[in-house]
Design a protein around this nucleic acid. Structure first.
Lengths: 116, 116
DNA sequence: GCGATGTGCAACCGTTGGTTGCGCAAATGC
DNA sequence: GCATTTGCGCAACCAACGGTTGCACATCGC
């Protein structure tokens, strides 16, 4: 294990949460429990259709699940999948962090050597 | 403190690290210390010009800095800026995590109530 | 000086986030 | 029961972006 490239990352998941509008949509869904394309669009600076497309992306990525209810379609976050996404976020962050730490240690070591 | 929307995120920074190719470029630069457009392109499945464009994006975002050296231009990671980016990654992750935790607690509370 | 190597610029293509416009299904009102 | 609203889905279109090819220009090595 421990790939050298830190790209164990599920690219679909990442690109799903990579878009700022989609991140805000996830925020709203988490806060309000659920929502429809129109209800989300009211709270966002984009049209209903744009929101609908994003919901499609999030759905295909498995981050949300939509269930028809009468004439409207309510979406809610899939907790487990979002948890997975969060894990990947922190995994990438951790990898970079580790490398930065190592570089810092090396730099300090060099300084110490030169001070001798 | 505690913005409700978890979008304290510098959008330029995020979109810079949002692209998978750019993430791999940062990886390579961290591993090898520095690199040029051509050197990175050899280790990536894209052309030199694509890499050059990405370096431009990363440069404008402040994540890398390029210094001309003869006929080539060597880039290296700006540690402080990347550290900032990592912090934002984990901040978004933490916000979602907190909400998921809260939902979980509420769900458990409801279960407990119903079991009474 | 001359070929090889590295960079930068410009034109072009496919994908994607966004828009407008339309048609259709389900709730509401009389 | 029928007309009106309200919510959804589909299609066409546009701008921005990641990627490509092609070319011109600078620099290093011999």
């Amino acid at each position: 294990m421990s790939a050298t490239t830190a790209e164990n990352v599920d690219d679909d998941l990442w690109s799903a949460i990579g878009d700022p509008t989609r991140r805000r949509m996830l925020d709203l869904l988490l806060i309000e429990g659920d929502g429809t394309a129109t209800s989300l669009a009211q709270r966002l600076p984009v049209t209903r259709q744009a929101v609908a497309k994003h919901l499609g992306v999030l759905d295909r990525a498995g981050l949300v699940r939509g269930t028809p209810a009468g004439r409207e379609k309510r979406y809610r976050v899939d907790d487990a999948q979002l948890a997975r996404a969060v894990a990947q976020l922190s995994s990438v962050g951790a990898a970079w962090d580790a490398r930065l730490q190592r570089i810092k240690r090396i730099a300090e070591a060099i300084q110490r050597t030169q001070q001798d």
